[in-house]
Amino acid sequence: MTGMVLALLTIHTNAQTEIDGIMMEKHALCIGPMFGYSSWKNYWEGTLKRNNENLGTVSATMYSIMGNYGITKKINVLFGIPYIKTKASAGQMRGMKGIQDLSLWLKWNAYSKKIWQGRFKAIVITGYSMPLSNYTADYLPLAIGLESRNLYLRAMADYQRGAWFGTLSGTYVNRSNITIDRNSYYTTEMHYSNKVDIPDAMAFNARFGYRNNGLIAELFLDNWTTLGGFDITRNNMPFPSNEMNNTKIGFNFKYDMPFLPQLSLTGNVATSVAGRNTGQATGFNAGIFYVMNIAKKVKKESKK
């Protein structure tokens, strides 16, 4: 998930459906712009929660395009491309901006069965993300991303009974080394290389709520834990290979317009409740998505 890998900038792009249990119909394309804003004043320096008068409030603004296409009813492909701009309200450091990482996902509803008058679905999702621009990761907390190429493998279970549902998922994230603009750096020891080993990570997501007749309203809990990395030492700067953990809770909704059901509004708010070497961020996202059936158009065109 684009936002979650951001070191101290946890943007919540959870409206993207690679984290939910919904599948698009065959040949349906859902696409739209999304806006996000996230900021924090306090952050965890290791386990110590502190503020920083020389940063003030650190914020990230995101504009993105996201889409979801049904290859079949059981196999969806998804993508996202965010543009991110960061800013510190105090101090001298200049924020950064640029196109961040392209993410691509393949979502497969591998198993579906009626159980106890409800429907159980098992979904397997793989994803890949990579930087689309040559941005600088080694400028935390104001870098727009961490620059690693990530491979995601997610297992998801979704159960719906009537209008109520719950979804659980766990993700393993394999993250590549990154290349920084200097030829040495200190972590807990000196390194003479421009390559940095970014530790892999695990993500966990739980969500439940109401899902019926063009309305989704859900609460979610989201956790990101890096498998390795080191703590920011006292009054030091953060570094891309820090151990970065964050847990947040939030509310998400999606509403299909009654007058035009293909058009939906989506939005969420979330806030960090625990973390390590990350910001205690609060943020929101809002998007408008439009669903179109590509197949129908193709058929019409071929008749002409």
């Binding site: 196999i75 393949l106 397997v124 491979l151 493998l153 394999n174 030829n183 390194h191 390559k195």
Partner: peptide, 24 residues
């Protein structure tokens, strides 16, 4: 598709993260 997933899973394990340090 199953094969594709298997390939992706094996990729997860095969990415070498060894870093060669200049001074070594």
């Amino acid at each position: 598709l199953s094969i594709l997933f298997l390939v992706l899973i094996s990729l997860l394990g095969s990415c070498s993260k060894d870093i060669t340090e200049d001074n070594m």
